[in-house]
């Protein structure tokens, strides 16, 4: 494996899961999320030389992922689906407790898909514990405004989830 490939593998392993969550939260679709993840890392591979000396490489990867998501929705005219198609419940033979947990994850993604596009992006980063200054840098929104936005989105998502559970 060349040095470039080794570096890319390290970057991919460290960031792919979080980027996948972002893409999944945005599209609500398993296949689309994988496509977007691939497109994002394709750009990373293409621009690896530029990244070599960057301290906050994850910020740049998030930035590419967000822009890729936005463009993807526009070009393909895809909308987040109400009915998700993930392989969230992977094993039917899993214990009931585990199944319940994964059902809750599915519900959570359904609720995220009801948010506006920028809200979906911001909240998935919040839940993956991306620091606020990094989210601000990725989204281009000042930290002060972002905190207000996040407060609102948290409230909105919690309400959506509880509403869903009551049904």
């Amino acid at each position: 494996m060349s040095n470039k490939e080794q570096l890319f593998k390290e970057i991919f392993d460290a960031n792919s899961k979080k980027i996948y969550h972002l893409c999944f939260g945005y599209t609500g679709d398993d296949d689309a999320a994988n496509d977007l993840l691939q497109e994002t890392f394709l750009k990373v591979w293409q621009n690896l030389e530029k990244f070599r000396n960057q301290s906050m490489i994850s910020t740049w990867i998030y930035r590419i992922a967000v822009n890729t998501c936005l463009t993807y929705l526009k070009s393909e005219k895809r909308q987040a689906k109400d009915e998700l198609t993930p392989n969230i419940i992977e094993n039917r033979e899993e214990e009931t407790g585990e199944r319940e947990k994964q059902e809750q994850v599915k519900t959570l993604y359904q609720c995220i898909s009801k948010l506006e596009e920028n809200e979906r992006i911001i909240i998935t980063m919040v839940m993956d514990e991306v620091p606020y200054p990094e989210i601000a840098e990725v989204s281009g929104i000042s930290e002060g405004n972002l905190r207000v936005k996040i407060h609102r989105i948290k409230h909105k998502l919690t309400e959506l989830y509880n509403e869903h559970e009551r049904l």
Binding site: F8, D13, N34, L42, P86, I88, V105, M127
Partner: peptide, 21 residues
């Protein structure tokens, strides 16, 4: 609690770095 649910998820990408290259 929602963050707790989020952290329990098993969703993961099906592609690896070689496929991207």
């Amino acid at each position: 609690s929602l963050i707790g649910i989020w952290n329990e998820q098993k969703t993961a990408p099906v592609i690896d770095h070689r496929e991207v290259i």
